[in-house]
């Protein structure tokens, strides 16, 4: 149970979104793909060379770049 950014969550672990650090545009983009504050994300893949991560949320897989992931604060569960 610790708070960290999404890119720090190890594979197969889950986190609950606490804060999305970004403006209207970034929040809307994430919301549109099913990622909201309070949602539980499971990291199912992480690319090499600081490649993107894939999270499973609401039964769907979403790939997001590390930089974007680093701006999503989560509570590891």
């Amino acid at each position: 149970m610790k708070n960290t950014s999404l890119d720090e969550i190890p594979m197969t672990h889950s986190g609950k979104v606490l804060v999305i650090e970004g403006g209207f545009q970034m929040r809307s983009n994430l919301n549109n793909r099913g990622i909201h504050v309070g949602d539980v994300l499971t990291v199912i893949r992480a690319g090499i060379l600081k490649g993107p991560i894939v999270v499973r949320v609401h039964g769907m897989d979403v790939a997001l770049g590390r930089r974007m992931a680093s701006r999503i604060m989560v509570e590891e569960i």
């Binding site: 970034m26 994430l30 793909r33 790939a63 770049g65 974007m68 701006r71």
Partner: peptide, 8 residues
Amino acid sequence: SPGMLFEM
């Protein structure tokens, strides 16, 4: 842009 974001 802060990076890519797309559905698989």
